[in-house]
């Protein structure tokens, strides 16, 4: 399931941040590598919430700094 979640998350990241899938892997930081600002991260979180039907509390958003963080967080919540 993790691989499927990862590819779905990467798809959302590409759409939201206007980046190419080839530039996205779990090591990438949203802000440092993928050009996101704080508003873009809020929008990304909303898109993830909608896609996976989960609610991500604001105090947990701060921990989602890389693609890998997002993948493991969502995977855990779905599990």
């Amino acid at each position: 399931m993790s691989a499927e979640v990862e590819s779905q998350i990467i798809e959302i990241i590409c759409e939201q941040l206007d980046v190419e899938a080839s530039d996205v892997d779990t090591s990438k930081s949203f802000m440092d590598d993928l050009g996101a600002d704080s508003l873009a991260i809020v929008e990304l979180v909303l898109a993830l919430e909608e896609k996976f039907d989960v609610k991500i509390p604001d105090d947990e958003v701060d921990g989602l700094q890389t693609v890998g963080h997002a993948v493991s967080y969502i995977t855990q919540r779905l599990g």
């Binding site: 508003l39 873009a40 809020v42 929008e43 909303l46 919430e49 909608e50």
Partner: peptide
Amino acid sequence: PRRGVSPYFVP
């Protein structure tokens, strides 16, 4: 309000 309003709404 949580999902219906974009963080870019005001700017």
